Simulated scan of single mutants.
Amino acid sequence: MARVSFLGLGVMGFPMAGHLAAKGHEVTVWNRTASKGTAWAEKHGGRAAPTAREAALGAEFVMACVGNDDDLRAVCTGSDGAFAGMEAGAIFVDHTTVSAAVTRELAGIAQSAGLGFVDAPVSGGQAGAENGQLSVMCGGGAEDYAHAEPVIAGYAKICKLMGPSGAGQLTKMCNQIAIAGLVQGLSESLHFAEKAGLSISEVVEVISQGAAGSWQMQNRYKTIEENRFDFGFAVDWMRKDLGICLSTADENGASLPVTALVDQFYKEVQHMGGGRWDTSSLIARLRR
């Protein structure tokens, strides 16, 4: 069992930190909104700290799951940042989806301070976090990864080292690119079924057993049918992620025409007031 700090207690971080406590790790948490830290400690035991630096004091592993590049820099650096409280040899594990550039930047700062750094973005959404069934794609040094993997296993169904620093984030980009196209295809399929007078449930029962089947189909068709988009990963966050994908594609020369198009469709959903709807809400723009 390890001394672990967890920074960021949103819909993902709150249950992820809870799994670590349930596994017997000694967990200290921090959240920008202090009341969430207090609520977590009341539910799971452990301790809530007032700053990221204080949460990291004495921790062997510091895990983070925050919002974006700027949020990650803020919790890592500065006098109240986690790096200031970590001891040499401790390992920072970042579960935030951010750019590979900020990952490499912070990994370099960590290395200069004698700290380990593993970028470890996750896939599986809120349900995956709550059930401890996340897919975790990692970048960093092999030794740091080997030390961190048994802790990450507390909420992972698969965890794999993909390469050096930034490789985990690049793999997460592949994940988001694939999801964007899948959700748009599913939305068009179910929209077509509605227009054709077919039962969505019956259509999915049949086509999900063949080549059209997907996680998105199995887990989202019912809420799509009911026009409910209050479960899962928010459109605002998806657009943030797709922006990272498209920016990185500009740098490496990858062609992402479908991703760019779906990003604009999500922009339309935002303009409809759906920024906090989940990503399956793409069908809403077709139903207008």
Rank of each mutant, 00 (worst) to 15 (best):
V4D: 12
S5H: 03
F6Q: 02
G8E: 04
G13L: 01
M16L: 03
A17C: 03
G18I: 08
G24S: 08
G24F: 08
H25F: 07
H25Q: 04
R32T: 00
A34M: 02
S35M: 13
A39S: 07
A39I: 06
W40V: 10
H44W: 03
P50K: 09
A55N: 10
M63D: 10
A64D: 01
N68L: 15
D70T: 13
D70N: 06
D71R: 01
L72Q: 09
C76I: 04
G81I: 08
A82H: 10
A82V: 09
A82F: 13
F83D: 05
G85T: 01
E87N: 12
A90S: 14
F92M: 04
D94C: 13
H95N: 06
T96D: 08
T96R: 11
S99T: 15
A101R: 03
V102D: 08
T103C: 08
T103P: 00
G108T: 13
I109Q: 02
S112L: 08
S112V: 10
G114S: 05
V122H: 11
S123N: 14
G125K: 01
A129W: 10
N131K: 13
G132C: 06
Q133P: 07
S135V: 05
M137T: 09
M137Y: 14
M137N: 03
C138M: 05
G139V: 14
A142T: 15
A142Y: 10
E143D: 15
A148Q: 09
I152Y: 04
A156G: 13
K157A: 13
C159D: 11
G163T: 13
P164V: 07
Q169F: 08
T171N: 05
Q176L: 11
A178V: 12
A180N: 14
G185T: 11
L186N: 07
S189W: 03
S189N: 01
L190Q: 04
A193R: 03
G197T: 13
V204T: 00
E205D: 14
I207W: 03
G213W: 12
S214G: 01
Q218T: 07
F229E: 01
F229G: 06
F229K: 09
D230K: 11
A234L: 01
V235L: 06
V235M: 09
W237S: 09
G243R: 08
I244G: 05
T248N: 02
A249S: 12
A249M: 00
G253I: 12
L256Y: 07
V258M: 15
T259D: 07
Q264H: 02
Y266T: 12
E268D: 04
Q270L: 11
T279G: 04
R285A: 10
R285L: 09
